[in-house]
């Protein structure tokens, strides 16, 4: 769904943690077409762009729940700009470039580690859902209600996310083996 305004546009996109490269490339294409990202929210599904001059800029996604000041220092010194300050663990970094396309992760290990940080948080959410489901079960409250059904669906959803990210990590590791 695309909502067009004068100098801004909002694009909704559903995506998963195993499709980061696709998202990064999409934002880079948008910037080439003169749409610079300035905001993202709604669990990373709503992207807001401002009309700007077309340029080559690399976008990179990091996932960090708890970082120190020096995290931002390293990125900024290396010429990366944080697109939006949010409470979400997702950090989108942007850097304009000419010839050599830069990146924030330059080896497979650090990419896999970023994906594992996602898996860790999803696992945590799944454990919380399980505990809630267990409480529902022992208290017998609203057992036939909507809450247990929602919890079961969320558990299935989390399992799906973890499987997909895990498969993606396996692919990354296999690609790193050159011989």
């Amino acid at each position: 769904m695309v909502v067009k305004m004068k100098e801004e546009k909002t694009v909704w996109r559903m995506w998963g943690g195993w499709e980061i490269e696709k998202m990064e490339n999409w934002l880079e294409e948008m910037e080439m077409e003169g749409w610079a990202l300035y905001k993202f929210d709604f669990t990373m599904m709503r992207f807001k762009f401002k009309k700007s001059e077309s340029r080559k800029a690399r976008y990179c996604f990091d996932y960090q729940s708890n970082v120190g000041d020096d995290y931002y220092g390293i990125f900024q010194e290396d010429g990366w700009e944080l697109v939006d300050e949010t409470i979400s663990p997702w950090h989108i970094w942007r850097k304009p470039y000419q010839d050599n396309r830069p990146g924030i992760f330059t080896d497979t290990r650090s990419l896999v580690e970023r994906n594992n940080r996602q898996i860790r948080n999803i696992t945590l959410a799944a454990i919380i859902s399980l505990i809630l489901l267990y409480i529902e079960w022992i208290t017998g409250l609203s057992y036939a209600g909507i809450i247990p059904i929602l919890l079961i669906f969320s558990l299935i959803f989390y399992a799906y996310l973890i499987t997909r990210i895990h498969q993606h990590n396996k692919k990354l590791k296999n690609n790193a083996i050159k011989c």
Binding site: V67, I74, F75, W93, G103, T106, R109, R114
Partner: peptide, 12 residues
Amino acid sequence: INIGAGTMYGNL
């Protein structure tokens, strides 16, 4: 060898 900012932070 160029170490990216994310790889750098992760290593440190």
